[in-house]
């Protein structure tokens, strides 16, 4: 069968769309100070920011796994209006501007926030300006990606496997760990990777809620933003690192999705 020809107009628009993605990447690569890249890579500002970013994004992903998988189970296995509202609330951080998320976090967990004020009065602990705040901001923004992926995985799961296991006498936790989780592994994996990537790139909520201090809350995106004004070469080098990481994630996920 002959394939229908795509009109030229659609091809042109598609090419323009592609250029919008590709030109900025080309700009980064062409303008990169390759001769200085190694020096920038070993610069303490860069390594500190990179180390902090890896720590914060992995912590955020771990928290998202512990809290997000149960949340996805509740959302996937219940019905009704309340569930729909919960589901909308869960996905809210995906559409909320991150800076707004940061302000909201301040108003909840800041020293004068809803919960933060009690915490401060009782224990003297202040969350903003700490690495914990950066992890919280990243978790807030990134967890929905994991929840959505795991929920979709649970919905497409053939529940007869779990029923069969149950009918053979397995208890809830045994079914969960031996049947449900292994079946969910691809969904959890791709959800966790997306969540981690989003956490790694987080800027707005982090700088608003956690502030900016090298080694404590200055993650790579914040370092890029700051460096652009003082040391553009460092900003470009850091951007390249994030670009390489993003491409690696995409390639990895593609294999996962194609089942290779």
């Amino acid at each position: 069968m002959r394939r229908a020809r795509v009109p030229a107009a659609i091809g042109i628009l598609a090419a323009l769309g592609l250029l919008l993605f590709l030109l900025p990447l080309a700009g980064l690569i062409v303008r990169a100070p390759w001769s200085q890249t190694l020096a920038e890579l070993t610069d303490p500002t860069t390594t500190t920011a990179l180390g902090l970013s890896i720590f914060c994004s992995l912590s955020a992903t771990a928290i998202a796994l512990v809290l997000g998988v149960p949340l996805a189970m509740i959302l996937a296995r219940t019905r009704g209006t309340l569930r729909n509202i919960l589901r909308a609330l869960t996905t809210l951080p995906m559409v909320l501007p991150p800076v707004v998320g940061g302000v909201a976090l301040l108003l909840a967990f800041g020293r004068r926030g809803l919960v933060g004020s009690l915490l401060y009065q009782w224990s003297g602990i202040q969350i903003p300006f700490t690495t914990a705040a950066a992890v919280m901001a990243e978790t807030f923004v990134a967890m929905p990606f994991l929840v959505i992926a795991v929920e979709a995985g649970l919905r497409s799961l053939d529940q007869r496997y779990e029923e069969a296991a149950r009918s053979l006498g397995a208890g809830y936790w045994r079914v969960f760990t031996r049947v449900t989780l292994p079946l969910l592994r691809p969904a959890i994996f791709s959800g966790a990777v997306l969540c981690w990537a989003r956490a790694l790139g987080e800027f707005g909520a982090t700088i608003t809620f956690a502030g900016n201090f090298p080694g404590r809350t200055q993650t790579v995106p914040i370092a890029v933003y700051l460096a652009l004004e003082t040391k553009p070469e460092a900003a470009i080098t850091l951007s390249l690192i994030l670009l390489v990481v993003s491409i690696a994630i995409l390639v990895g996920l593609r294999d996962r999705w194609l089942g290779v």
Partner: peptide, 20 residues
Amino acid sequence: PASLEQQVTGVLSKVALGEA
């Protein structure tokens, strides 16, 4: 310092909000 803000108004708002 707990944080190094991008503009002086950021310092002001952190104090006004009670975080600093």
